[in-house]
Write a protein that binds this DNA or RNA. Structure first.
Lengths: 336, 336
DNA sequence: CTGTTAGCGCTTTCAG
DNA sequence: CTGAAAGCGCTAACAG
């Protein structure tokens, strides 16, 4: 492949020393404007771009950050984190190196090792759904942040969706639309998401003088279908707050089976805002968007802060809970 | 942050010269096994990992490849390409640097520049749906491959889904199940995918002595809904071959509206295998999977080949069409 | 079998 | 205002 021009080539072509070229490009140093312009022109002419690998070696700053997540597929979540991270990185003059450990812890450690050997300035450690973790020791060797997982210690900053806000917002929204018989389609697993959403649902219901009722199901369409059937069989329900959009999709199918019209006979709220599902359903599914993009952005910004205040070894960090916006579509009707 | 140990530190600790350490780690050179083991042990002890940035500077080989795509979100496609690329890269001792140009051509050029300044050994240029492109000039300056887009020149190798095979497989599958009145729900846009699938559909139908009928709609659920209504109104149809799963989802909704049972009254085949949709629909949607993962894998393998045979400047490359497997679920019934 | 050394491309101090 | 030179961490040719 054609070699890229080096700083030497530019210096020679511009009839100056390499130091001058370096200064001119960095906008530093004192030199005649004429010289500066000439150097810049020559550099542009030759298509010169500094070798950032050499510069990183010198500076001990690569301007590369690593992003490792358990798996980049099946859901658009990872995509949004990545997109957010990439966008923010561009802004900050950084570049992202991605690694996907297929959720194997040894791969994970190897990946941290590799990233470190590339001298990344920091690492974003992202999980694909909100969970509790212990921070991998390798992360403590350099600036790092955690996305969509809550570390059990305060060793590193983290950001997660605000699960209680999700539950509260969804429930209030239905209450505000005049519903009283709102049942929550929850899941069995003991996760921050299931606990938080349920807890907020229950307390908002009680605060409004309504009676909470939770029906459990698998966290997929089939589970939503089954749970909806049970919910409707076992008591009155004019609205469903589903753990996620997939279950909401199942609720639609169950409603169809029962000859119920959404939203006239049954209102539904989901969580996730899976565009592919929520926007495609008829009527569109009102849901709460998980702020993966924003978490990606926050992660690089926080990392950047951590990078240049060169954190004191035993800092204490917060786990931020970030609000999830409601995305209104047509699946909720006002009850009069 | 704690400095990583350098090769000097290891040499000192092991009481040898840095060259010996380098050799020991590389498994090269001649030295006593005792020395080698000791060096290795010391290195492990100190948690030493070679600075790959220094090594890249020396070798003029970074073992980093760049991946730029128009947008990493909304669809799981990009995720699968990335995952494939990452997995194959790990295998090959490479690492991936991702960039997402939000489809802005200037961002794109800047991204190529940045990747080159990081001395990437090659670039994967991925589009998020099959289209025709002219290869960006910046890509010709280094090894590169194109994913999910067909370059109008043969300057670089590319890989795309085999659109005609998709049309042929879907159609034959329905024919084999005894259907004759198969209508194709197509889209208006003039794309390789719409053209190829339609063309194969028509010729397979004719070859079987059946009459092709195409109904157009928007490429989303609403479009599929509308198109299905029209298809069923304007003529006989026992099966639908939909341009994508989203339209298939619309077909389900239309069938429900008309009181038609899938698959008893109407069989449906989609394309994309959007897990979130196809597996969640009731009954599960039979569809063809777009091999994004495999394209990602192929891309790094092809890149690796290109990297070490150091391609002659004016090579001619092929655009590969890769087969898309049928994913059978329950949306197709045998017609007797 | 082991050590010395030049140099990858860049930045920056220090002399001129 | 400009240039020479040291050195970031590593590799590999060469000398011992």
């Amino acid at each position: 492949m054609p070699h890229q021009p080096t700083i030497h080539a530019v210096a020679e072509a511009a009839q100056v020393s390499i130091a001058t070229v370096s200064y001119a490009l960095a906008g530093k140093g004192n030199m005649s404007n004429a010289t500066r312009e000439r150097v810049l022109a020559v550099a542009a002419e030759l298509g010169y771009a500094p070798n950032r690998i050499a510069s990183a070696l010198r500076h001990r700053r690569s301007h590369v950050i690593g992003l490792v997540n358990d798996t980049i597929s099946t859901t658009p979540f990872a995509g949004h984190v990545l997109l957010g991270a990439n966008t923010a990185a561009s802004q900050a003059g950084l570049v992202v190196m991605t690694m996907s450990t297929n959720d194997e812890p040894d791969t994970e450690d190897r990946d941290f090792e590799i990233l470190r050997s590339y001298q990344v300035d920091g690492i974003i450690y992202a999980k694909m759904f909100h969970q509790e973790i212990t921070v991998p020791p390798a992360l403590l060797k350099l600036p790092s942040v955690i996305v969509d997982a809550a570390p059990s210690t305060r060793e590193r900053p983290a950001i997660v969706p605000d699960e209680e806000q999700i539950g509260a917002t969804a429930t209030s929204y239905l209450l505000d639309h005049g519903h009283r018989d709102i049942v929550h389609l929850g899941i069995d697993a003991n996760l921050p998401s299931s606990r938080g959403r349920r807890k907020a649902y229950e307390s908002v219901m009680r605060a409004a003088g309504a009676t909470p009722r939770v029906v459990h199901g698998e966290s997929n369409a089939q589970g939503g279908y089954d749970a909806t059937l049970r919910a409707l069989r076992d008591g009155p329900a004019t609205a469903l707050f589903c753990f996620n959009d997939q279950m909401g999709m199942g609720a639609y199918a169950a409603a169809a089976t029962l000859g119920l019209d959404i939203p006239r006979d049954l209102s539904v709220v989901g969580v996730d805002n899976l565009e592919l599902v929520a926007a495609a359903l008829r009527p569109g599914l009102t849901t709460l968007r998980l702020p993966h993009y924003e978490m990606g952005v926050w992660a690089v910004e926080e990392l950047a802060r951590q990078m240049d205040r060169d954190p004191s070894p035993a800092d204490q960090f917060e786990t931020l809970a970030i609000a999830c916006p409601l995305v209104e579509r047509e699946s909720v009707a006002r009850r009069t």
